[in-house]
Design a protein around this nucleic acid. Structure first.
Length: 563
RNA sequence: GCGCCUGUAGCUCAAUGGAUAGAGCAACAGCCUUCUAAGCUGUGGGUUGCAGGUUCGAUCCCUGCCAGGCGCACCA
């Protein structure tokens, strides 16, 4: 018995229907289950008969009738704790459950603990999540923070559903921008010694450039002052990259993000992989020379124009490395690749997919998730940010202002393809207006109750773990039932969020669950003079605590025990 | 001009093609001799940008328009 019994029952019924010829199609991957707005529509409902109607060419209510009959004759029905199934409206199946159903859910949560909601649907499939991958030409800023929170939460969701996950950061550590970085830090280095060689207008002007120059001065002193600029640029380029990468890694670690692999673009050239990938494209007949440059004819594969891979000056474009990089990824044998890109890269989706397809790989295994921008708000007004002038708010500043937990939670409060307004004032508030505090407070409050219960002498042999069903029968208030239902929903939220790559569903779920908990807390006392009732209520709120902590963990947000 | 994303309550946003489109915030009115008031209760609030189309049924899919964001290099 698990909270997903209804899904299993329906799948079983659908399978039987298919075998016996009542239905043509196989059961879908996931059975849509919803909690109806009104209790009159049961505890759970599914519009599955409605959605199958079109494909089956059969009226929805008729399908609903089939499924109802098959459910009732299924071997699983006896143990499913279903009180009754009704066909309602256009063809909904409304499930009314016995109280015992919820009690079994609670016991399952206590039994499984932090494993509750985990699933094995991934079957150990290997998934790579590549995210952040910010160029090492400056510190991480807020938009990178969104990518970091998003990618890590998706990775955690995939792990929780039985996938083998690798987190990777791709480093653009070669090319024109890097050369510009080296030149910028070199000239700032000179200016530390009173020599002025003006920064190129297209160079990097941020204050951090001087910080890098100072680090180099600390380490090596004035030894790069003499000789021509050209003699020092290689060193300044590689050293600046190294220093910046160190800062980026430190910021990421502070943000709780750990990458399994940092993949160097320069390495692709060192290993001759770019040339080899281009050679592969040549054998596929998608390369051509035009105007002295080398192009990939991606137009034939869904892109809106052809793309240059080798410029007429002989230099490779970044697209050339991207092709080699994605070939390398596929060669590493991942079942699925997920790239998380900022909105400014959305124009690259078509060309990368086209190149992947041209190399004979399945572009369907490459999922490119594009997230929209983040604007910081202070006092309701946008904080001005301009990449060009080097005036932007770094991730580090945001974290030190609002904390890791608020930052991660806020980055995950919106669907990734909508622009995100990050309200700095709200993120710092310690009141119910601030969603992350609201949720964390629920956890702290529960921990406090547990401590009180212990102090009140709740016996060890009546801990929630082995609370018996007859004790749980004492949970009969509507708000208790609402909590149990929300808890029972958790596994399907995890599956849905993973499938859609939408961690924001978890932040919404948590806010709802926390709301139910706070309401319950104010309406009913948990620790009472009645020992059995106390046990039952502790079992309930204990399960809430487990789910809140587990869900926060998937978002990378701490669940504090006191606040 | 072309492409992608977005348009839902005053604000910020949810809602797999399904039942009467939901939350939170803000506003207003209440609640602390009791487990954390960092909280709770109640009230009002909608032509889902506009116009068509597909469907038994559209916030969701298709077409056109309007508005905002982001792209549109032999830059990354």
């Amino acid at each position: 018995m698990t909270p997903t019994t209804i899904e299993m029952l329906l799948k079983d019924a659908l399978l039987t229907a298919q075998k016996s010829g009542l239905l043509k199609a196989a059961p879908p991957e996931a059975i849509p289950l919803e909690v109806p707005k009104s209790d009159a529509y049961g505890d759970f409902a599914t519009p599955i008969a409605l959605s199958l109607s079109q494909a089956e060419g059969c009226p929805p209510r008729k399908i609903a009738q089939y499924l109802t009959d098959l459910c009732k004759t299924s071997a699983l029905f006896e143990s499913s704790r279903i009180d009754k199934i009704e066909i309602a409206g256009p063809g909904y199946l409304n499930f009314f459950l016995q109280d015992a159903y919820w009690h079994l859910c609670l016991q399952a949560i206590h039994r499984e603990g932090s494993n509750y909601g985990r699933a094995m649907v991934g079957n150990g499939k290997r998934v790579q999540v590549e995210f952040v991958s910010a160029n090492p030409t400056g510190p991480l800023h807020v938009a990178h923070g969104r990518a970091a929170a998003l990618g890590d939460a998706i990775a955690r969701l995939l792990q929780a559903t039985g996938h083998t996950v690798e987190r990777e950061y791709y480093i653009n550590d070669i090319g024109g921008q890097m050369a510009l970085l080296g030149q910028s830090t070199y000239r700032r280095y000179l200016s530390l010694y009173g020599r002025t060689l003006p920064l190129a207008p297209e160079g990097y002007h941020g204050a951090y450039i001087a910080d890098i120059a100072k680090v180099i001065r600390e380490a090596d002193g004035d030894r790069y002052l003499s000789g021509p600029e050209e003699a020092h640029l290689t060193f300044f380029t590689s050293q600046s990259c190294k220093i910046l990468l160190g800062w980026i890694k430190r910021d990421l670690e502070q943000f709780g993000i750990h990458f399994d692999n940092f993949f160097s673009e320069a390495g692709l050239y060192a290993n001759n992989e770019v040339a080899s990938a281009l050679a592969l494209l040549r054998t596929k007949g998608v390369l051509c020379e035009r105007d002295g440059a080398l192009w990939v004819t991606t137009t034939r594969l869904g892109d809106d124009k052809d793309r240059v891979v080798v410029r007429s000056n002989g230099e490779h474009t970044y697209f050339a490395s991207d092709i080699a990089y994605h070939r390398n990824k596929f060669n590493r044998g991942f079942d699925r690749l997920i790239n998380i890109w900022g909105a400014d890269h959305h124009g690259y989706v078509a060309r990368v997919k086209a190149a992947v397809a041209a190399m004979g790989e399945d572009p369907g295994r490459l999922h490119i998730l594009v997230h929209q921008n983040v604007s910081l708000l202070r006092d309701g007004k946008p904080v001005p940010m301009s990449k060009r002038s080097g005036e932007f708010v770094s991730l580090k500043e945001v974290i030190s202002e609002v904390g890791v937990d608020a930052a991660r939670f806020f980055f995950l409060m919106r669907r990734s393809n909508t622009a995100l307004d990050f309200d700095l004032e709200l993120a710092k508030k310690t009141s119910q207006e601030n969603p992350v505090y609201y949720v964390q407070y629920a956890h702290a409050r529960l921990c406090s109750i547990m401590r009180m219960a212990e102090a009140a002498g709740v016996k060890p042999d009546s801990t929630p773990d082995n609370v018996t069903s007859d004790v749980l029968l004492l949970l009969k208030f509507p708000e208790e039932c609402a909590l149990m239902k929300q808890l029972a929903l958790y596994p399907s939220v995890i599956l849905g969020a993973t499938e859609a790559l939408e961690p924001h569903r978890l932040t919404f779920y948590l806010q709802t669950l926390a709301g139910l908990l706070h309401r319950y807390y104010f309406q009913r006392r948990i620790i009472t003079d009645d020992a059995r009732l106390t046990q039952a209520r502790l079992a309930l709120v204990g399960a809430v605590r487990i789910v809140v902590k587990t869900a926060l963990d998937l978002l990378g947000v701490r669940a504090p025990e006191t606040m």
